[in-house]
Design a protein around this nucleic acid. Sequence first.
DNA 1: CATTTATTTTTACATCTGTTAAAGTTACTA
DNA 2: TAGTAACTTTAACAGATGTAAAAATAAATG
Lengths: 236, 236
Amino acid sequence: MTTELRDLPVRAVDCLKYIYKMRERGEKVTTSAMRELLETQEQSGQLSDAAVTQLFKLLAKEGFVEHTPYRGVELTPRGEAVAAESVRHHRLLELFLARQLGYSLDEVDAEAEKLEHAISESFEDRLDTLLGHPVVDPHGDPIPNKAGEVIDEPSLPLTQLEPGREAVVRRVSDDNAEMLRYLTQLGLVPGTRVQMRGREPFEGPLRVFIGEDAGGQERVIGVQVAGSVRVAPTTR
Amino acid sequence: MTTELRDLPVRAVDCLKYIYKMRERGEKVTTSAMRELLETQEQSGQLSDAAVTQLFKLLAKEGFVEHTPYRGVELTPRGEAVAAESVRHHRLLELFLARQLGYSLDEVDAEAEKLEHAISESFEDRLDTLLGHPVVDPHGDPIPNKAGEVIDEPSLPLTQLEPGREAVVRRVSDDNAEMLRYLTQLGLVPGTRVQMRGREPFEGPLRVFIGEDAGGQERVIGVQVAGSVRVAPTTR
DNA sequence: CATTTATTTTTACATCTGTTAAAGTTACTA
DNA sequence: TAGTAACTTTAACAGATGTAAAAATAAATG
């Protein structure tokens, strides 16, 4: 086990975790992007770019990232191991909060963020057992196993589902609580069946049938909303 | 709600909590006693007396304690409110760890110590509901309610139980993991029935019958062990 | 391709929290 | 009650982590 995680400042671990998540989405990890993420996701309020630069330099010195000045950072294998364990903690906790304590989809992220730095290896293992060795969290995001490996179920953004095709919601973006409340209200949560009814060109709105035949209904949603949802098409 | 708890440094909150617990036991809160407690209970390793003095001055300036230089500190009502909430977090978590995650009596304190600073008001309330609004933790220590009040079941140290008298174990001291493992092995845990069979003078060993008639057995224990156990005599 | 604009890094400095060592206070003892 | 031992506080300073503003670099534009 690595568990260097517990020797690093909380903010440094979060930083590695966010690099991991940005790479999951294929985004480049720049100084200002990281500053924005840390500002919105941590409860710390404002943060300067200079602080992020210093963080990058610390992480580079300790061998967790490659830092190319003025270009951004990338995880080394060591950094990825720490990030994966942090993400594992976070997502196990999210599932626990949703399942055992009745938290809603938009609440779990903030609470897990605070708890993930406080739990021990033993707590992690017991939670994993209690939850039945889960592989996805309540948002549908994969939970890395102890070795840091994830099961990557193929999915595509709802925006790319062809008209007429049916699908099952697999993942919803976890980083915007307000969006999650809206998605929950629409019923666009992991496990729900959907059918694309129509798409307007030029980033126009989408008509989507949400739910099972009788209980479901057709809704019109914007691309930003649809872009927050990933689906797995149903084979026909 | 006070909840000033979340604006204070972790160590300051711990300090208030330990003042609260020392007063529970009727001990005086001196600089060096607090240093020892912080060293053993937090995982921070060594600590200087000077650091504790500075902590006392900070807490006094903010109105959480009365500090009489060279004499020690006492909680103000504000300090007591924060301490009680901290203790509430700690003991609810201990019960959760023991009940839901199968932690043993000697493990819960250290894990709860780390988690108690990370949980939100909402988490506290949901845990309280999940556990059925409990009034004692796994060691038998009372859990303050939201108003900071505790139910104080009368009990006396096992060392003071008269020969021949029967009793039920109510509380075990929570601050020594090794002692807790020994007590667990003996069966001297909250809820167990005991009968005092004999006491030797001059702090000598005690003969105690532990358990129900058939399954129980007589053991000889030292005063330090017996002093870690509080019991409620069975009326006859 | 020179210049402007945006971004990132460096520098100088502030704050918080800890340390060690000296000085101060209290309590014990002969 | 003077002297000493134990404990506590103060003073000087150190390290970690933050900021603001200046300097450096990269990217965009006429």
